[in-house]
Design a protein around this nucleic acid. Sequence first.
DNA 1: TATGAATGAGTTTTCATTCAT
DNA 2: TATGAATGAAAACTCATTCAT
Lengths: 193, 193, 193, 193
Amino acid sequence: MAATLQVLVRDGYQKLTTTRVAERAGVSVGTLYQYFPDKRSLVTALKVHYFELLFREVGAVAATKIGAPIELVARAMIETLLATKRKNLALTLALREPMAELGGEALVREATGQLVAVTRAVIEASMPGIRESEQAARVVISSVEGVIAAVIQERPQELSSRALADELVALVVGYVKQRGGAARHPRSQRRGD
Amino acid sequence: MAATLQVLVRDGYQKLTTTRVAERAGVSVGTLYQYFPDKRSLVTALKVHYFELLFREVGAVAATKIGAPIELVARAMIETLLATKRKNLALTLALREPMAELGGEALVREATGQLVAVTRAVIEASMPGIRESEQAARVVISSVEGVIAAVIQERPQELSSRALADELVALVVGYVKQRGGAARHPRSQRRGD
Amino acid sequence: MAATLQVLVRDGYQKLTTTRVAERAGVSVGTLYQYFPDKRSLVTALKVHYFELLFREVGAVAATKIGAPIELVARAMIETLLATKRKNLALTLALREPMAELGGEALVREATGQLVAVTRAVIEASMPGIRESEQAARVVISSVEGVIAAVIQERPQELSSRALADELVALVVGYVKQRGGAARHPRSQRRGD
Amino acid sequence: MAATLQVLVRDGYQKLTTTRVAERAGVSVGTLYQYFPDKRSLVTALKVHYFELLFREVGAVAATKIGAPIELVARAMIETLLATKRKNLALTLALREPMAELGGEALVREATGQLVAVTRAVIEASMPGIRESEQAARVVISSVEGVIAAVIQERPQELSSRALADELVALVVGYVKQRGGAARHPRSQRRGD
DNA sequence: TATGAATGAGTTTTCATTCAT
DNA sequence: TATGAATGAAAACTCATTCAT
């Protein structure tokens, strides 16, 4: 797996060949095929690892902060997410391209599913009575991922900037309040949002 | 270009070969190569078309609504965006994978740049005095794209649901207010953004 | 033909394509095919021109000097040969590669044939009674061509050096004397050389 | 390498394709590419082999005869050269065309360089005090090659004729004496060579 | 007489995968 | 369990030549 990552980093996804991974790992192709049934499984293993990593870290923080005001939980989770991506920058970057590849949807779906569950719990705890909380959780996750993806693609060095975390917190908090605020301030301008 | 799209839809990006596109187009490979210098240019042409399409539609609406309250502009632009993607669903889906491919970043960057400019103008008009308006525009665009991408990936049929538009409007409006609201209502709860 | 030469000079023989020659000539491929039946004929025309050129120049000089002492005829012919190659350096260099190509032997054979005839006449006039004069003429021509070819290949700028002409004259004169000298100096060491 | 040679002999250089060589060798293209990195290297390997062969044979004879009278050394080397070409006739013929191909000059230059060194040593030993011995060696080699090339091209069967060897010896001996003789017989007709 | 779009066989090269050792 | 040579289908791209206009 380390070899796969290195090849991905050095040569890119298009240049990833089983031979290259094998020689990078210091074994023969034959041996490689004894541990990974085919080429795709090499990258899949990396994806699984990546999701586990993210989920472990972010999930742990979420567990700690559950019930806290949305601003706090959001900030904690977002900073953990960013920190984890930063600490595994090579992996994060390397998986950018393979992630979009068709056929691996099940994996992503499953990984997302877990994160949705956690996020939903957090949101419900912070905004009791919020409607469609699962949908809200999905919006939160996918919007945050979208922003991070764009940053990584266009200005990777800003991944560790203070500003990015602030923006993401504003995004999430603003959204959740807008979504759930109605429940708390019934006189407000519902309709049109 | 139509042939490229059809092959992309039917066989996927990995299976896209010059031969297949040619035969789908009903011409010989040689002829294909007289109009497109290499394989990549096939997909690039599609990307360019796609971006032009989106920008034309969304840009036009933005021009109409500039200066209107953020709720209105946001809804108008988002509904146009969704409608355009829906009307060109095959194209939208087909480009999902190739879009992440490394090496075509310049194109995406440029397309994004234009949209950022428009969005920024709209935001500034609706929320005069907002700080870091370009950054805000980028956050808005990438978060909306992120949500749409996730929906397309996991539940494509919801692309035309009323709920999706509502969620996106909430996301954008919530964020912008959270970001810029302070300026207009100094007594409000700044902190946390 | 000028276009063929230019393409040959600029792009080399491997890169010579009918399209390139046509566009260099400012006409369409179709038109090109109305004057030259196929690709090979493009280069053949150039070869024919080249041989005619050489033969015209060298032949003219030979006619003038026929009967003169071998040193003089040899020098005159060699200097003319070198001067002609120098004056048509692009052509000379451009044809180096195509000249070796199989299938054009007839042409070369014919061109050589004419030159052999002239050279033979010259040698017989200078060294009356020489045996196997045709063979001698062939040796003279091919050895001179061999030396020039090597110079062009390895040190093209020496093509105009005084030294080269001197060497070639020594080569030819030495050979002819060695071959024919016996007849004139019967006491010499004939046998074995 | 044997397969390359056979294809070269049977189909000519223009028709030499990796597929053909592979099938002639009784292996798949893939296997071929595991031993030769690209098409060109197939022919290069043959050239290297050819030069090594010639140099080994001719060099060995030269070492034996060094210091002997020029007539003897010349004859020994020339006969060895001719015998070697004859014994490897297919190779000799097959390489005629590829040898002129641009881009492989370095190889030829190097091979020639070695032979020049040997020839030069031989000439200096036989004709002490000769001027410009390197130049003389180059003239000797390239003229001999020129004559042999012409014979091979136009009358290949004469390669083994007694007459050819005699002619070449006359050429070399005549030249060297003409060039260097002056030093030993100061009264002779220097001037004009 | 000129044009140049269309053709498609042919070329080089790659690489996932197998399997005998 | 490891090896790595062998495989060969598949891919991108080229270019001489034709022929309808």
